[in-house]
Simulated assay, not measured.
Amino acid sequence: MNYPKLNEYRMLNQHAKKGQILFVGSSLMEGFPIYEMQLTLNFGLDRVIYNRGIGGTTTSDLLQSMDACIFELEPSKLFINIGSNDIAAAGNDGYSKDALLKNYNDILDQIKERLPQCEVFVMAYYPINAQADFGIDQAEKTAMFATRTNANILEANAAIEQLAKQHSFSFINVNEGLTDKDGNLKPEFTVEGIHLWPNAYTVILNNLRKYL
C-alpha cells in the first residue's frame, strides 16, 4: 500500500465536496487524467469527478483503505476498477481468482451497506499487450505477463460481472476501440503493454461518458 498517497487523499478529502462522482482503483485508475479532461471537455455535469486511484493497489489493499479512498467522500456515483494487480500475482501467494472474488465481494458488501444510495459501476479490466516490443528485458516481460494474460482478464471480467449483478450494481465494459483484431491492447495506447497513455483514456472516457 502506498501510504504517502493514502495520507495525501485523507488531507484532500477534507476539502472535497460530498455526493460527487468518484473513480477508485489501482494505477490504471490513478493514471486516468480525469481532472484535466473534465476541465477541457464539455461534460455538462453538475458534479465534480474525484480520482482516488493508488498505484500497486490490490483488492486486499483497498479493503484496508476504503475510508480514505471511498467513504469519506460519500460519492453519489462510484466507478471502481480494482483487481488487475491481483491477476498479476501481486504478493507471495500468486494469482487466485477465488481470492480476488472473495475480496471484491467484501468490497462491494461494504459499499452497499455504507453507501446504500450510491450508484455503483464495476468496470471491466482493460486488455493487455504481451506481444509488442516495448524495449523491456525479456525476463522482466515474462514475469510481467506470467498471469496477467488476456485470457485471465476475460475470465475475471465474466466473474466480476456476475458479482456485480449479485449486488444489483452495474457492470460496464468501456474497452471498445482499445484492442486490435487479435484482442490485444493496441501498442499506441500503452506504455509497456499494461499501463495506458492519455490517448487510451480518451477512448475510455468517450465510452464512459453516458454513465457519468
Rank of each mutant, 00 (worst) to 15 (best):
M1V: 15
P4R: 01
P4A: 03
N7Q: 07
E8I: 05
E8T: 07
L12C: 02
Q14C: 05
H15F: 14
A16R: 06
K18F: 05
K18A: 09
K18T: 08
I21T: 02
L22C: 00
L22W: 01
F23L: 15
F23V: 07
E30L: 03
E30W: 10
Y35Q: 15
M37N: 00
M37T: 01
M37I: 00
Q38H: 04
Q38R: 04
T40A: 09
G44C: 04
V48W: 10
Y50F: 05
G55E: 07
T58R: 15
T59W: 03
L62F: 07
L62Q: 03
S65I: 05
S65L: 07
I70N: 12
F71W: 09
P75H: 06
K77F: 13
I82M: 06
S84W: 08
N85K: 12
N85P: 12
N85E: 11
D86K: 10
A89S: 10
A89T: 03
N92Q: 10
D93H: 10
D93W: 11
G94C: 02
K102C: 13
K102S: 14
N103Y: 01
I107D: 00
I107Y: 01
L108T: 01
L108Y: 04
L108F: 04
I111V: 15
I111F: 08
K112S: 15
L115F: 02
P116E: 07
Q117F: 11
C118L: 01
V122K: 00
V122E: 00
V122R: 00
A124T: 05
Y126K: 06
I128W: 03
N129E: 04
A132L: 02
F134E: 02
F134W: 00
G135K: 01
I136N: 11
Q138R: 15
F145L: 01
N150T: 12
N152C: 04
N152I: 03
N152L: 03
N152Y: 03
N152Q: 03
A158T: 13
A159H: 02
E161N: 10
E161V: 04
Q162F: 08
Q162E: 09
Q162H: 09
L163W: 01
A164V: 02
A164E: 00
H167R: 14
H167C: 12
S168N: 14
F171Y: 13
F171V: 04
I172Q: 06
I172L: 05
N175Y: 13
N175A: 15
G177R: 06
K181Q: 08
D182A: 14
G183Q: 09
L185T: 12
T190G: 09
T190L: 08
T190Q: 09
V191T: 10
V191I: 08
G193K: 02
I194G: 06
H195E: 04
H195V: 03
P198R: 10
P198Q: 11
Y201K: 11
V203D: 08
V203R: 10
L205D: 04
N207P: 13
R209L: 15
Y211S: 12
